[in-house]
Structure formats: structure tokens, C-alpha cells
């Protein structure tokens, strides 16, 4: 199963954190920064699989059983300014997870039309909604792009980012005092 889904940008700023187990906020932050440290050190030619971060590293090396409840795989994909991370157990297929991230990003792209980091910052609720259509409780429920998009739209209108947001801080005009 999938234990956690994380999205953060090139500076390690989180854009989405979803843990499928209840975890202390401080621990979440630590895990996030550990993974960011790992992922930021990867040269571009590397593969998309990370070694386990120290927090998740098995306490002993005897965990050699084929299957285990413990997370054993950290998969990541890097798109423009964002890293998408999946932490999963051995029941997931590594290559299929990469495709799953692709579906996720494509779904976001459909919803936002040329999605960029700013969209996700302002609409992080939508980010959660899309994920909820694909993964429930750590188990993948949908991998079809159409159905995911359809499911999110059924929940209500997806907001586009505020107009002119690119000049943030200067153009508070119409939004100010709302």
C-alpha cells in the first residue's frame, strides 16, 4: 500500500502532505526534510527511486521477508519546480507508481489547464481532492485519468488561481478586503 504522498518544490516548501497513518506534525516535518535532503542531492540522470530516509530505515537488517507492512520504497518524480513523492510498501510495483504520479499530474493539468506551482499553492484543497479520487486510505482506487477528473469535478467547481497572481503582493486590488 501507499503510506504517504508528498509534494514539495525545489526549495523543500511543502505543497501537499498526505500521510495514510496518523503521524505527529513534528515527525511529518522531519520526514519531509529528510526526503527533501535526499531528493535534492540527486543528479538529473538518476533513477526515480530513493534509498529509505533515516527515519524509515529498518532498525535491523533482518527484515528480509518478501512482504512487510513497513514502507520499503520511496519513489519520486520531478516536474519543473515540484517534486512528487510516494512512499510505499513492497506490494506496490515501482514502475507502476511512476505511472501513477504521471496520472496525478495529468489530472491536475486537466483541471487547471497548464497547471503550474502557483495553481497548486492557491488551490491546495483541489490537490487533496484529486488525490482522494485516486488513493483512499493508502490503496489505489482509480488509475483512469477521465474518471479521476470526473470525480473531482463532481465535488464542485475547481477554482483557477486568482487573476494576475504572478505579480503577487502588488495587485491585491480586487481581492483586498473581501
Amino acid at each position: 500500500m501507499i503510506n504517504a504522498v508528498l509534494v514539495f518544490n525545489n526549495n523543500g516548501q511543502p505543497r501537499l502532505t498526505k500521510f495514510y497513518t496518523q503521524l505527529d506534525t513534528a515527525v511529518q516535518q522531519r520526514l519531509l526534510s529528510e526526503i527533501f535532503t535526499l531528493v535534492a542531492a540527486r543528479p538529473p540522470s538518476s533513477c526515480n527511486f530513493l534509498p529509505l530516509p533515516p527515519l524509515l530505515a529498518p532498525s535491523s537488517r533482518t527484515a528480509s521477508t518478501e512482504h512487510n507492512d513497513a514502507p520499503s520504497l520511496v519513489t519520486y518524480r520531478h516536474y519543473a519546480t515540484l517534486y512528487f513523492i510516494l512512499i510505499s510498501t513492497s506490494t506496490e510495483s515501482p514502475l507502476a507508481l511512476l505511472d501513477l504520479v504521471q496520472v496525478y499530474v495529468e489530472a491536475l493539468d486537466r483541471l487547471f489547464e497548464n497547471v503550474c506551482e502557483l495553481d497548486l499553492i492557491f488551490n491546495f484543497e483541489t490537490l487533496h481532492a484529486v488525490l482522494a479520487e485516486m488513493i483512499v486510505g493508502g490503496v489505489v482506487v482509480e488509475t483512469g485519468l477521465e474518471k479521476v477528473v470526473e470525480g473531482v469535478r463532481a465535488r464542485g467547481r475547481v477554482a483557477k488561481r486568482p487573476v494576475n497572481e504572478s505579480r503577487a503582493g502588488l495587485s491585491q486590488g480586487i481581492w483586498a478586503g473581501r
Binding site: A80, V115, E117
Partner: peptide
């Protein structure tokens, strides 16, 4: 941040 993230993965 306005770079569309669909772009080819960069590193």
C-alpha cells in the same frame, strides 16, 4: 512557479 509542471522533468 508559473512554469507548467507538465514540462519535461528537469533536474
Amino acid at each position: 512557479m508559473q512554469k507548467t509542471i507538465r514540462a519535461k522533468e528537469t533536474k
